[in-house]
Amino acid sequence: MNKNNSSTVTAKPGLGLNAWMIAGLLFFTVPMFSAFIFSVQVGDGTYTLGAYRRMISDPGFGEALWISARLAILTVAIAIGIMVPTVTWLHIRAQRAKRIVEFITLLPLIIPPVVIALGFLGSMPLWLKDSVYMLVFAYVVLSMPYTFRSIDTGLSAIDVKTLVDAARGLGASWRQVMVSIIGPNIQSAIFGAIFLTVALVLGEFVISNLLLWSTLPVWMALVGMSDAEGAVALSVMSLVFVWLLLMLLSSLNRRRKVRVNVGGLS
């Protein structure tokens, strides 16, 4: 359409962009596919789901999954139970405290997980240190940056104060306000927070490894010492599950037009 190549016309990336995209695509897909094939290949040319069967039937798998699942459920319950009322309260009553609360929730991004493990060992009472449930509190701490951001974004998208005032004015109790007004309006934000927290708990390695609890990732690393195919098969299963969660989350966000910046969970 253009008669000559003016510097002003929008840049049209040709081969350059495509080469980049293909290189990027390879970098991100080759390890994935390699892992999958590695986990189903026996010798040359025979394929089997043996590694998966072996892992799933291993008693260690059930135990590790059971620990991780319990931790995930409890972490979600406590994290949501604390963050939803707190952030709602920040929106309707204590806007001035928002910055300090946000800062505190972001601290786990500054304190590396390994240091959090160290700190828990140095500060928790013995009876709690002896219990696997201490991990729950550590995980709630780790999840705070994501739960806060997700719920805050959800609440910012609606005019909470007006909704609450209107509901209170019509005679609703606080419990009714939370359950039938706030809850449904930030449903997707809460789901987002739950997904992120579950993904985090299922992938968390540092703290459980250091505190010697055999969660899924810890067991996976242990398996890897002797059975590479098995460990890779476990990795594929766990990442596929986490990816599904995250993809569900991002489609949820797109539908609600709420952007949650997820980053650096590792």
Partner: peptide
């Protein structure tokens, strides 16, 4: 979307993915 997903891919599984691809006996 992919960036959101991959940015959260770390930890133990990631190590095994790369072992499967470019480890000593990787594909």
């Amino acid at each position: 979307t992919a960036s959101g997903v991959f940015a959260n891919t770390g930890g133990v599984p990631l190590a095994f993915f790369f072992i499967a691809a470019i480890g000593n006996y990787g594909l």
